[in-house]
Nucleic acid binder design. Structure first.
Lengths: 234, 234, 234, 234
DNA sequence: GATGAATGAGAATTCATTCAT
DNA sequence: GATGAATGAATTCTCATTCAT
């Protein structure tokens, strides 16, 4: 349908005024994506909103796709940075604590600008057809894997790459799908609990992994919990 | 952008000839979606492939969206039926066995026509904007919930609706994402194992839920594992 | 720069109203080419002048080039037919007489619509890049060759294909160039004389080939002419 | 369409550095014309290839047309000089010898850079619309006329201006058309022979003008030929 | 019911040209 | 003199949709 044009920005602006223009264009694109969706983000519309001429848009972006790509890039770079920082702050936390923090962060990030998130995720497959590899996804997975690595022995899955893939995508998807079809879940602490239970139950199926607040002596607690649950379910 | 037209087929054709035409149109649309993607599925193209005139397409479908919607409807109806039948065949199976069967079925279904699945999933959000509620999703969730209900006492989550939501979307998403970015996973039994572990670990976190074939001496081994892990975590 | 699109008309119109539209489009294109030149013949402009929508233009012609091609085709078909008819009327004429008639006809044809002729000739090379072979040119040359064939023994050149090529292009070019840079020549009988002299001198260098009116007994006349000319040149 | 801007270079650069820039621009234009054709020769592209900014291009050339014009000018000036030199070397040669040399030279010149020649010839008409008179053509014709002048008495045509026009354009056109549609002819000595025959037959129709090497006993053979032909024609 | 010709708004993209720095 | 960012009119072409036959 479309000959594959390179999606990378066309030229790196050298003069500062060019940088301003370039930023304005990306920002305008994001705005339109949020307000009116992908189809409304025509290059002319973007130019108009950015307060520049179409020509300027094409000076920096070789196509409409490149434009969306740039927004995506920016958004995902943020996500990556956030996650990196989040993880940096995690030293000393238990796996359970760490997971809860990270899941909460992912939810918060997406809830921050749900519309943009939504539109970008919807366009991802389209972009992937054009870009063979998705360096962002690769780095994200690596991050999760590196997070799991030190816990390798406490954790059931042997294939940490697959585990990272599963965990990352589970959290992403469940956040995303809640966002679009059960927004009420996003504000319910129970949902976070369940996500944590899901991931922890996957990583450490023999532990009781859901009760909050975290107990001190895991062995005893587990036994207790198990008993009490049987009681409840009776 | 677009005035919201009703997406239901325009007329239920009563004559069998008309039914044939209508089917041909849906089939043609599906074909094109699979072969060339959403953008290529122009109404004229569909008409040509279906061997009818554009006029006839508009006789049965009020818009392009209605067309895609019909394909989606058909595809999802199949999925629903499959799941219903799958569940019907489940009587007597343990939760673990049942889950494995169902997960395998979902994977198989999607792998059957990955391209169509992909395109339709990509278009889902677009459709959702037009249809506020997604009756298919509702029924799917109900099905999963009804499946969980009899196991309510063996299972940790108390909010079975949320559990159904989480399980259903987890399996769907992980199948989908594997399809598009890790097709190799689809053929690896280990991936099915992990999905089962994920869901079972969520539903029954205190049980050992992954080893295959299912261990007979689970209690002992579980205890042992638990001990060694506690040791490590100390 | 441009991926090579097929230049043949897109669809043969089946309904008569379509034929009307199609003709109107070609006629409008020709008009614009004549009045404003190639660059002005934008598809929108053509549509406007033809009194149809751009969409209709693209229904029948796959690109702007196809449009010009159609005009060319029509114009050249006329030229071919004219030449065929002209030759049919030639039975019994001597080579000299025949040539004079044909040359006069070519000149007349081009003078008939000089502007159109000019524009089309200018665009020929562009079209040739798109169409590998030029069937019209082939047929024209064959026509000239077939005209020479019966005279093969009266005529000096042995390679009749090359002779046809040379004669045809000489007459064409000299007509064309006169048209664009010496329009005064077109109305001067002397110019026709010279063209005849050129071609005849090429075909039959030993004959005296220019004097008008045609003499009866060629042998005597030739001798006489030769003598008188020497006298003049003295 | 376009307001008629003067086509002469904007400023004659006096500083040598500027001259270098100016040359670089013309050379770049020529290069692009050769490699990618007229449409690809955008001013920005030219600037990039020339290693200057668009602004600099417009410092020296008032428009894109002026740019192409400059290339044309340069190319044609070469042609003119070549012809002048060629003629200067001709003293003592017979008309026949002279013609053969000149024709060969024209062919060689065009074959030297066929692509450039082609592009420029295609653009000639466009340029002519802007420049009413073509001083180059005028000078070329004068040159040919001056060449004919001394032979005025050996030569049939009396209107030497028209003769120059015809000869010049015949040779030019037949070279050009061979270049673009019968490149094989360019390397065949027979083609040169035929061109010579054409021109000589035009200038001196009573002489035998084609046999090569030039016959010494032309009178006898000519007579013989004439006889046999008359016989055939009888 | 069916056809397919016609529509036309609107999309992406280019490129000659200007002008502030 | 030189730069290159910015311009924006203009162009090609598509496609969902309508409606006369």
């Amino acid at each position: 349908m479309k000959s594959s044009t390179p999606l990378a920005p066309r030229r790196k602006p050298r003069q500062s005024r060019a940088q301003v223009t370039c930023d304005a264009i990306i920002t305008a694109t994001a705005q339109i994506l949020v307000k009116d969706g992908y189809d409304a983000a025509s290059t002319n519309h973007v130019a108009r909103v950015a307060g520049v001429s179409v020509g300027s848009v094409y000076q920096y972006f070789s196509s409409k796709e490149a434009l969306v790509m740039a927004v995506m890039e920016r958004y995902r770079a943020e996500g990556l940075t956030d996650l990196e920082e989040g993880m940096a702050r995690l030293s000393g936390a238990t796996l359970r604590e760490a997971l809860r923090l990270l899941i909460r962060q992912v939810l918060a990030k997406k809830a921050e600008n749900p519309r943009l998130h939504q539109v970008l995720v919807e366009q991802l497959p389209r972009m992937r057809q054009l870009q063979q590899v998705d360096p962002y996804a690769v780095r994200m997975l690596r991050l999760v894997r590196d997070f799991l690595q030190p816990h390798a022995r406490e954790v059931r899955p042997k294939d940490l790459d697959m585990a990272a893939f599963i965990i990352f995508n589970t959290v992403e998807s469940l956040t995303h799908v809640a966002l679009s079809s059960r927004p009420d879940y996003l504000t319910r602490e129970a949902y976070v609990d369940e996500l944590c239970a899901l991931v922890l139950g996957y990583l450490q199926p023999t532990r009781e992994s859901v009760r909050r607040p975290p107990a001190r002596t895991s062995r005893t607690r587990t036994a207790a919990t198990r008993k009490s649950r049987s009681a409840r379910n009776r």
